[in-house]
């Protein structure tokens, strides 16, 4: 029986079917749990899906590459989803026109804080150079962050993990931090979450309100663009000075 199951498993892992199906099942299970708990931030669906899948792959001795050959179809959709952020953004056009100056300044403040504090704290606690460079773009959505990491000498696949972790941490903490600071405006709450926690923060913000989601999506897109410009420039300047 066991040997037979093994045969079937080996056969299935040779096709992209398994990775894709498992990802969708794990996510829907995690999402069901999240909805049951009335969207409590601690039950973040990405965190739970990743834990489920990583445990399953470890138990069955399946390599990540094997899993990813199927899961890449889901991963690929990050591109068109990023483009699709233009639509909720457009819905907020009136507010964008009225507030673009404040938005831009807050964005620069958030972007500089995110990259510099990530590297500073990691360096203070003795992280290696590779880890430090892989952490720099941690607040930016996965495809962008991986591109930046590759450019500056980090490990793109490690960056992807750090980015997803950042997103989960941001989605979990945002409510508590913003409540403590007495920030009530959904536009501000969404924007801050999007700058710090990219798409996972944006997904969380959309669950709170359409307005918070739109501003989070805007923040995610703008921060992606700004970080992609600033991080390589800052490191280049730092290398020149040292």
């Amino acid at each position: 029986m066991n040997a037979r199951f093994n045969d079937i498993w080996v056969y299935l892992t040779a096709t992209p079917l398994l990775g894709l199906t498992l990802t969708l099942i794990a996510y829907q299970l995690a999402y069901w749990l999240y909805a049951k708990a009335r969207f409590h931030p601690l039950l973040n669906p990405v965190a739970i899906s990743v834990a489920l899948l990583a445990t399953l792959l470890a138990l069955t001795g399946t390599a990540y590459q094997t899993y990813f050959s199927g899961a890449q179809f889901v991963h690929f959709l990050l591109g068109p989803a990023t483009v699709a952020l233009a639509i909720p953004l457009y819905a907020q056009l009136a507010r964008l026109k009225a507030e673009w100056r404040s938005l831009l300044i807050a964005l620069v403040a958030g972007c500089v804080t995110a990259t510099s504090s990530a590297m500073l704290f990691a360096w203070m606690f003795g992280a290696s150079r590779t880890t430090l460079l892989s952490l720099a773009p941690k607040s930016v959505t996965t495809p962008i962050a991986m591109g930046i990491a590759e450019k500056i000498g980090g490990l793109p696949s490690l960056t992807a993990v750090l980015v997803v972790s950042t997103g989960i941490i941001g989605a979990v903490l945002a409510k508590y931090i913003l409540d403590a600071l007495k920030i009530v405006d959904h536009a501000v709450r969404g924007f801050a979450t999007g700058v710090a926690a990219h798409g996972i923060g944006t997904a969380r913000a959309f669950q709170v309100s359409e307005e918070a989601g739109a501003f989070a999506g805007l923040a995610m897109g703008l921060n992606g663009a700004l970080t992609a410009l600033l991080v390589p420039l800052a490191l280049w300047a730092a290398a020149k000075l040292m």
Binding site: G19, T23, L24, A26, Y27, N44, P45, V46, A47, S49, V50, L53, A54, L57, A58, Y64, Y67, F68, A71, Q72, V74, H75, L77, L78, P80, A81, A84, L85, A86, I87, P88, T142, L155, S157, L158, A160, V161, V163, V164, S165, G167, G199, I200, T202, A203, R204, F206, G213, G217
Partner: peptide
Amino acid sequence: DTANTLLSHLSLLFVPAGVGIMVH
């Protein structure tokens, strides 16, 4: 409608990259 469908499960799209934690 299409954008809303795609964005309503935005967090799903981060799962495959997250599972990469195994490698690291």
